[in-house]
């Protein structure tokens, strides 16, 4: 489904990603872990098409297409969803208007008519249940004044509405209380299917107890320096990153 080949990404003149290789197949869940500042969010943003980040080298192939040639909106319409580490507050844009415009843009891309108002409200109600999101939140402006946890829940709510093929969740678990973590994980698990794939960026092994990954990668200084099965996450939880850092820095 997703093939990243020797991807190098700059911010201004600074190289942040220094040759990422990653292959994700349909039905898989990949976890990406790694110390702060190692480039995890940069990778996520590059996949979603933030033009602030400059791809200087390498390829991103998604479903056989060169992703870098698509605008961010077309990537989304092709089924890529980014759950933001820091969801943006947009005062004055109502959640309802935002979600309706989003869904209808996707539908238009697929040649479908806009969703009738009644169906849209029904869909909202249905998906709200999955993430147990407060009705009050959907009556407000996008993320405006949402608590940290509410913002994260809102990301999963949007994911549930949009039903992406490839979901990239950037620290969706950070800032969630234990109940919310369970709810969010359930939400993600409900959307898992043999046709979909998920990339989970996280610092905590705990999330991976709920959403069991097929592969765990460690990103460090812009490179994937280790990959393994879910036991790698356990190891990191126990020993931290120091041993990996030493390994990598010794070889450098």
């Amino acid at each position: 489904m997703l093939e990243i080949k020797d991807l190098k990404v700059n911010i201004e003149d600074k190289e942040i990603l220094k040759g990422i290789n990653l292959s994700v197949k349909a039905g898989e869940v990949h976890a990406i872990m790694g110390p702060n500042g190692s480039g995890k969010s940069t990778l996520a943003s590059a996949l979603a098409g933030r033009d602030y980040f400059n791809i200087t080298h390498g390829k991103i192939i998604y479903e056989g297409k060169d992703l870098t040639e698509l605008t961010p909106e077309d990537r989304a319409r092709e089924g890529i969803f980014l759950g933001f580490q820091y969801p943006v507050e947009i005062p004055g844009v109502s959640m309802v208007n935002f979600l309706r415009t989003s869904i209808n843009s996707m539908r238009k891309y697929r040649g479908q008519d806009p969703l009738p108002a009644g169906d849209f409200l029904k869909l909202m109600r249905e998906k709200k249940k999955i993430v147990e999101i407060d009705s009050d939140l959907t009556n407000r402006s996008v993320n405006e004044g949402f608590s940290g946890g509410e913002k994260k829940k809102n990301e999963i709510f949007q994911m549930a509405l949009l039903e992406p093929k490839l979901a990239i969740l950037d620290e969706t678990d950070s800032g969630l209380d234990i109940d919310a973590l369970r709810i969010v994980s359930n939400g993600v698990n409900k959307l898992r299917s043999p046709e979909n794939a998920t990339i989970i960026i996280t610092h905590y092994q705990r999330l991976l107890d709920y959403i069991v990954p097929d592969v765990v990668h460690v990103l460090y200084k812009g490179r994937i320096v280790k990959s393994g099965d879910k036991s790698l996450a356990k190891e990191l939880e126990e020993h931290g990153y120091e041993w990996i850092k030493q390994e990598v820095d010794a070889n450098a």
């Binding site: 602030y52 909106e73 989304a76 933001f84 943006v88 947009i90 415009t101 843009s105 949009l162």
Partner: peptide, 15 residues
């Protein structure tokens, strides 16, 4: 706000 615009785009809304 470029950040806000990207957020909207990432949900399939055209620029």
């Amino acid at each position: 706000d470029e950040e806000a615009l990207f957020y909207l785009q990432s949900r399939g809304i055209s620029k």
